[in-house]
């Protein structure tokens, strides 16, 4: 699937010129006059990036970033701004902006930024795929297996887990073997990495 560069700018001249520039550079371009239009019309789960003017009437760039952040398949955003105000920049970066370009925008820098954003998007997309697979595997675990999983990655010994869950140590060992199998990992270390990647909080033994 060819990545698409989504441009949001209320200024028609800029919109047209930027579209023309990116098209000439070989990108697929789709331009919108406002953030609302983008939110309404952005297809889901397509590769690409978004170029946003920070300063726009209506939904401004930062608002739009917040709105887009809610989506699973969020695209990297390149912010364009007349003058970079520090608080705005920080906010934008925290929100996941890949670039923050100050006007006048150097076309070469813009193209580079778009390239970077698309690489980022591809990367994000791979990670998202990987996580998706992990999640799918994780979801195969039974509730009991998940309880055991959380305690194991928290560093508890089989004996401690068994005491905690008030089941026998032998049963714990059985669960552990099934977990490793279901999640397709071969060691406790891999199991720990899996948990980190999925963002699963370990359950520490009670003091």
């Amino acid at each position: 699937m060819t990545p698409t560069v989504y441009i949001v700018d209320d200024d028609e001249g800029i919109r047209k010129a930027t579209t023309r520039l990116l098209t000439a550079a070989g990108f697929m371009v789709c331009a919108y006059p406002s953030g609302d239009r983008l939110l309404a019309e952005l297809p889901s789960n397509t590769p690409g990036c978004i170029i946003l003017d920070v300063c726009m009437p209506g939904l401004n760039g930062l608002d739009l970033q917040v709105a887009l952040g809610d989506r699973e398949d969020r695209l990297p955003i390149i912010f364009l701004t007349g003058h970079a105000a520090v608080p705005d920049t920080v906010r934008a970066i925290r929100g996941g902006a890949v670039d923050f370009l100050t006007k006048p925008i150097d076309p070469a820098l813009l193209l580079e930024a778009v390239d970077r954003a698309l690489v980022q998007d591809a990367h994000d997309r791979t990670i998202r795929e990987h996580r998706k697979h992990l999640r799918e595997r994780y979801e195969k675990l039974t509730d009991r297996e998940r309880q055991v999983f959380e305690r194991l990655i928290g560093g508890q010994l089989n004996k401690q887990v068994a005491a905690d869950l008030q089941i026998t140590e032998r049963t714990i060992k059985l669960h552990r073997a099934r977990i490793l199998q279901k999640l397709n990992v071969d060691s406790m270390a891999s199991l720990a990495r899996f948990a980190v990647e999925l963002g699963i909080q370990p359950r520490r033994p009670a003091p």
Partner: peptide, 13 residues
């Protein structure tokens, strides 16, 4: 900046 940027982008394109 708006028209100037547009001019620049058009020229680059």
């Amino acid at each position: 900046g708006q028209p100037l940027g547009a001019i620049l982008h058009n020229a680059s394109a």
